[in-house]
Design a protein around this nucleic acid. Structure first.
Lengths: 353, 353
DNA sequence: CGCGCGAAATGAACCGCTTCACACGGCGTG
DNA sequence: CACGCCGTGTGAAGCGGTTCATTTCGCGCG
């Protein structure tokens, strides 16, 4: 039941195996009529090259591994699309895997990738596997860290400035007149959460506005609903008049809980999220959010990786850190009547449709 | 710069290559102390097996290919998660790719998968590549079609009954008192859209209710907004009092457009979507939808594929069609005050093979 | 004491392709 | 006319594992 081999094609066409190989990869090096004949035989026999054999003899896989935290998160989907796009134009295949934020799965997939001899690796690290990453890199596989600033020297990375993102969100709430801001998110073991909180804190402090932190155990809709109801249940004068949620899923759930409780958004409470997923703009009250150029980040990361791969063979190239700036996408959930908002850096403010 | 090979490990540990291979795959066949010694050397040298070489000599890849239409669609994310879960428990790796509904990409990835000698293939066909799929199957790779009933004999498939889903949605709108229903979606070249429309048509007809079709060119938020505004702009007596959108993205956009235009949902217009994505329940007015057991579909498809793979080697097994039943998820966007809705039928029905 | 047996280890043959040193005319050039 | 070169082909030597028939050895048993 095994299919025809390259040597079967060669025999059938009356040429050497090397010639068939050339027909496949260097058509220019083959005389026109030979080429035609061989191609005909290939079609006739239904020959399908064996990728494993090719990889083995070539010594390169022609693919890169992409390990993300959560395949269901739109942010990572966009990121992956960007990577794929860039990889495609370089004739590289992308192997995608999800760690689901679990260290054991991260280890598993990193192992698999290394065994597959990927030419490069793009990783959003769960954390804790720095050692393994170093080992892989030291064995010769270029690695670019994603969505996390490389603290460890020797790694390149593409990330977005979460502190600045937090600051933007906090400043925006201040700008629309909030005096008691609540930051919702957690666990703080997540670097992103910490940084966004820090950024918001700076903006609040600078404006002399109070900032509280309502912790969540995870960033899910359930947790958002819970916190939303808690906020709604607070006595009016203690209640925050501005909520900054660490991601859009939380924000949307909070928004819903508040609305259901009869609290007017943005008049009584302004709400802003983070990530600017497609559904943010689709909410009943369109949700303000912090936009990250996820697609571009993916592209850029892949380009950076490619550069490292080129140089990587022999020279120890300096690592690069690319930091993207997040942007404010202001929508109805924060834009109170009569508020005037300074346009954020470059970004079109989108008031109601 | 090349890493240590299996034979280096063997030499260093003073054993034959076969023994090292056994240490890796049949530890039970190796004497305890030899095992320990070899493992120590492996760790010391940082030996990483070469997957290509292993695959070449074993003749199997230990992986399956999964080709979906759209990686950004939550439905496919869930499906993929189900596949991955099932595959994981069978020690199979999943290679994921997106055709983006483009026939050329479908061809490309099918080729790649076949060249990688995947042990099986799960495909949501774009359409038009039936021929290629047949060829691949005839060359010996088991294939299970996803989210589409296999019309071609000889293919197994896992799908959901879209006609029934359409009927459920239509019936629900009838049940909550709608007399003029609009179906929104397109293009009708998509089988799913056609079937949902047919199902809705049956329910409407049976109840003697009018059903119109507002066509869209694509199922995107933009198109939803457009149609939503059009509906809002209609004179009241012509306006539908129930809208069934072919997916949730459309539905959410319509919902938003109606709300923004000051039309009360569900009182003036009831809205129901399809897919029951996570964000449906998070909308300002929680969106009713038709739920598909995407995760289970993924699991089941993988199991079906595994069964085919087992049998596939020699016997020509009968193909199986598994059809899941969609379920109504009734929420605020259709539940008018005082309406009584018959509970939807309980459990997914799987007709046996 | 000789024999058979199972546990442990061996190592050469293969898996299917790419590569590359080399062969073989035919042709323009000095 | 001899030479070198170029356009075409050739085919054997790897690439790095797995497999399996075979060898080795210690031990219980008649």
């Amino acid at each position: 039941m095994r299919g025809p081999l390259l040597r079967d094609v060669a025999q059938q066409a009356g040429v050497a195996t090397g010639t068939v190989s050339n027909v496949l990869h260097n058509p220019a090096k083959v005389a026109p009529e030979t080429l035609a004949r061989v191609q005909a035989v290939i079609a006739e026999l239904g020959y399908v090259p064996n990728a494993a054999a090719r990889q083995l003899s070539r010594g390169r896989s022609g693919s890169v591994g992409l390990l993300v935290l959560d395949a269901r998160n739109p942010f990572f989907n966009d990121l992956a699309a960007g990577v794929e796009e860039a990889a495609g134009s370089m004739d590289l295949a992308v192997l995608l895997a999800t760690s689901a934020e679990r260290a054991d799965r991260e280890r598993l997939y990193l192992d698999r990738f290394e065994q597959s001899r990927v030419d490069g690796l793009l990783v959003t690290p769960v954390g804790g596997s720095v050692k393994q990453l170093k080992a892989i890199r030291d064995r010769g596989t270029p690695i670019v860290l994603l969505d996390r600033l490389a603290t460890t020297p020797g790694f390149s990375s593409v990330a977005v400035d979460d502190i600045e993102g937090g600051r933007l969100a906090g400043q925006h709430l201040v700008d629309v007149g909030c005096r008691r801001i609540a930051f919702v998110g957690g666990p703080v073991t997540l670097e992103q959460v910490r940084n966004r909180l820090v950024g918001a804190g700076r903006a609040a402090e600078a404006a002399g506005v109070a900032l509280s932190h309502l912790a969540t155990t995870r960033m899910t809709a359930d947790e958002g609903r819970r916190v939303g109801s808690e906020i709604a249940a607070m006595p009016r004068r203690e209640r925050p008049d501005g909520v900054f949620a660490a991601n859009d899923l939380l924000a949307l759930a909070i928004l819903q809980a508040l609305t259901l409780a009869g609290i007017r958004v943005p008049d009584e409470v302004a709400v802003i999220g983070y990530d600017d997923i497609a559904f943010a703009a689709l909410a009943g009250v369109p949700l303000s959010s912090i936009h990250q150029p996820s697609y571009q980040m993916g592209r850029r990361a892949m380009e950076l990786l490619a550069a490292t791969m080129q140089a990587g063979g022999d020279s120890r190239t300096a690592s690069q850190q690319v930091v993207f700036m997040p942007e404010l996408a202001a929508r109805a959930s924060t834009l109170r009547y009569g508020t005037r908002v300074r346009p954020a850096n470059g970004v079109p403010v989108e008031p109601l449709a």
